[in-house]
């Protein structure tokens, strides 16, 4: 099962990082880590990068220099990482956005499959929200509602990455044609339209869903991961893809490296990332931002990344 697999991979990664730093090459890194954020300053990935870089010196013995290389859906930053030396001193703080941008592009500047993944540092949990008291306010209700052809199609808004979650779940049940996926360039705009009653449902991140849980129903979590305690307390029992027996969509936040980076440096970077995420200060700040740390080392995250890539390739045509 996917949940068991992902949890096992995460646990394996955590044990490697927190208990076996001997994996790390003692001479590596030998200088500043160029930390490329493929988006402009101020977004979610940028915040992660800035929080993580605040303890970079303590972990690496050298600073993490955050560079925002935004543009073209994150492809400029990814391409910039590919143009750096494959010596392990340039990392990309990535999300599925540049992956999808490259998959959509006719002449992409890189192949998103050809990359080394040093670590996962988080996994988003695409969460579907609906107004309370509607026939589709629960997962079972939603499925029944969509199966009844006499009902109108339902509109679901959200960013493309977030929308892939419910899209994949509904496609597995053959119901993808009964919904209209409405892509937005940002979660804020989608939530605004949802609260104004212009779209029926909205798919958001956990922290946004927690804020909406008071007056709205939380329908499903399209990933295989459980919410943290605080989110559970706010949202109650929400089914996830695994509990529903469906293949999940686990959009990751990950540290990518040049495809020619030597294995030992990729592994060492993954281990160091684990140490970094385990520092008190990072845990505290990320917790306050309403995000969850989900760590996986290089081997585990490369395996999980392949699955995400396959899912994205399968369901992206739903938007075109």
């Amino acid at each position: 099962m996917k949940l068991m697999k992902l949890t096992a991979l995460a646990a394996m990664g955590a044990s490697l990082a927190f208990a076996a730093p001997a994996f790390a090459d003692s001479d590596y890194p030998s200088g500043t880590i160029k930390t490329i954020v493929p988006f402009g300053a101020g977004g979610g990935t940028d915040r992660w990068a800035r929080v993580m870089s605040s303890v970079g010196f303590d972990v690496f013995g050298h600073g993490m220099h955050v560079q925002n290389r935004g543009g073209a859906g994150g492809t400029i930053g990814w391409k910039y990482m590919m143009d750096q030396k494959a010596d392990g001193h340039a990392i990309l703080m990535a999300s599925p956005t540049p992956v999808m941008a490259a998959l959509i592009e006719k002449n992409p500047p890189y192949d998103p499959a050809k990359v080394r993944i040093a670590a996962y540092y988080s996994v988003m949990k695409p969460t579907l929200v609906a107004p309370k008291g509607k026939p589709y306010s629960t997962w079972a209700g939603l499925v029944a509602y969509l199966k009844d052809d006499s009902n109108k199609k339902l509109t679901i808004g959200g960013t493309m990455t977030q929308l892939l979650g419910p899209a994949s779940l509904l496609a597995q049940l053959g119901l993808e044609k009964r919904v209209i996926l409405v892509p937005y360039s940002g979660t804020g705009k989608a939530v605004n339209d949802y609260l104004g009653g212009h779209i029926a449902m909205v798919n958001v991140t956990t922290s946004t869903a927690v804020g909406l849980a008071d007056k709205n129903a939380i329908v499903v979590n399209a990933s295989s991961l459980e919410y943290n305690k605080k989110a559970k307390a706010a949202m109650g029992d929400v089914p996830n893809a695994t509990t529903l027996g469906l293949t999940p969509f686990n959009p990751p936040r990950f540290v990518a490296m040049h495809p020619d980076t030597p294995d030992e440096q990729v592994v060492a970077m993954g281990v160091k990332m684990g140490e970094l995420l385990n520092t008190k200060s990072v845990k505290r700040l990320i917790g306050k931002l309403g995000e969850d740390i989900v760590y996986m080392d290089s081997a585990a995250s490369e395996a999980a990344y392949k699955e995400v890539l396959a899912e994205a390739q399968k369901y992206l045509p739903l938007f075109q």
Binding site: M100, E105, N107, P108
Partner: peptide
């Protein structure tokens, strides 16, 4: 990028105009 499907358009086949 097209605002709905995100497919690039009028980019003169230059990826950096995506």
């Amino acid at each position: 990028a097209d605002p709905v499907s995100s497919v690039p358009r009028n980019t003169f086949d230059l990826w950096w105009l995506g």
